[in-house]
Every structure is written in structure tokens, then in C-alpha cells.
């Protein structure tokens, strides 16, 4: 650390120690967060205005089924087949008080794929589903003016 002498000469070197501190912390944080982000299936969700908060879908033990655009089905982050899905849902919800299945379907997924998952949910004797969407901030064209603010 170059210290100023008695003469008011300019300090020639920039002090990089705080920069290093910050960068190291950033590095550590991203090392911790990256595996958490990676196990989620990326899906382009449909958009809706009249949504509810579904914080429970983010819990690690929630039954979250993702349907990708090409019809692949994931329970959490594991790919599953439609045949084994009812058993998997039952196992997932066995120790869960919140008997809701959250479905995160891609906006461009075929509805027949989504209905296939609904059928599996029905087979697993689950009634409540939450269809995850993105929150729209503006009124979509299909809603009349009166719908805003309800």
C-alpha cells in the first residue's frame, strides 16, 4: 500500500483491494447459486392478468410438473414418462400438506400434452392444480376495459 509522503504527490497506483474483495464475493455467490438455477427446466410460460401468488410452487418438496414445448415432461428437474407420472405425483405429495400439483407448461406446448398430464394428475387422485403463468402488467386485448382493477 503506497502511502502518501509529506509531499502532495499523486498516488500512481489504483487501490485494487476492495475491487478484489467484491469480485471474490461475486464469484462465491455465483458458485453457490448456479446449481440452484440449473435444476429448473426453462419454460416460456403463457401470460395472464388475473393470477394468484403461488409461492408454494417454489418449495423444494412441491410437485412441480414442467411441460416443454416439444412435449417432454419433468417432475421437478427429473424427466418422467407419462406412464409413471401418477405414481411419482403420489410419492411426491405423500408427505406434503399442500395437495396441489403445479403445472408449468410452455405457452406453445400442444394442449393434448397438457391434457395428458391432467389425466395423470386425475389418476393420482389430485384435484387442485395450479397453472403457472407470467404476470401481465397491462390489460391484454382479450379482456374488456371493465376487467382492469378487479
Amino acid at each position: 500500500m503506497p502511502l502518501k509522503g509529506k509531499s502532495p504527490a499523486e498516488v500512481s497506483a489504483i487501490n485494487v483491494t476492495p475491487l478484489c474483495d467484491v469480485m471474490l464475493v461475486l464469484l462465491i455467490i455465483f458458485m453457490v447459486i448456479t446449481p440452484l438455477l440449473q435444476n429448473k427446466v426453462t419454460v416460456n410460460m403463457a401470460q395472464a392478468l388475473n393470477t394468484q401468488d403461488m409461492d408454494a410452487a417454489n418449495k423444494s418438496d412441491a410437485a412441480l410438473i414442467s411441460i416443454t414445448r416439444d412435449g417432454k415432461i419433468y417432475l421437478g428437474s427429473d424427466p418422467v414418462s407419462l406412464d409413471s407420472l401418477p405414481t411419482d405425483i403420489t410419492n411426491q405429495l405423500a408427505h406434503n400438506l399442500d395437495k396441489t400439483v403445479y403445472i408449468k407448461a410452455d405457452a406453445r406446448a400442444k394442449y393434448s400434452d397438457v391434457v395428458g398430464v391432467f389425466t395423470a394428475v386425475q389418476t393420482a387422485d389430485v384435484q387442485d392444480v395450479g397453472l403457472l403463468t407470467e404476470q401481465l402488467q397491462q390489460r391484454p386485448p382479450y379482456l374488456p376495459q371493465s376487467a382492469v382493477g378487479q
Binding site: 395472464a48 388475473n50 393470477t51 394468484q52 401468488d53 403461488m54 409461492d55 410452487a57 417454489n58 403445479y102 391432467f118 394428475v121 386425475q122 387422485d125 389430485v126 384435484q127 387442485d128 392444480v129 395450479g130 397453472l131 403457472l132 403463468t133 407470467e134 404476470q135
Partner: peptide, 13 residues
């Protein structure tokens, strides 16, 4: 980044 969604029911036969 909290999830939002639409609640629905799947009727049992």
C-alpha cells in the same frame, strides 16, 4: 421472482 399462476380443478370421474 415469485411464481404466479391460475388455480384450476381437475374433476374426478
Amino acid at each position: 421472482h415469485t411464481p404466479h399462476g391460475l388455480g384450476a380443478l381437475i374433476p374426478q370421474p
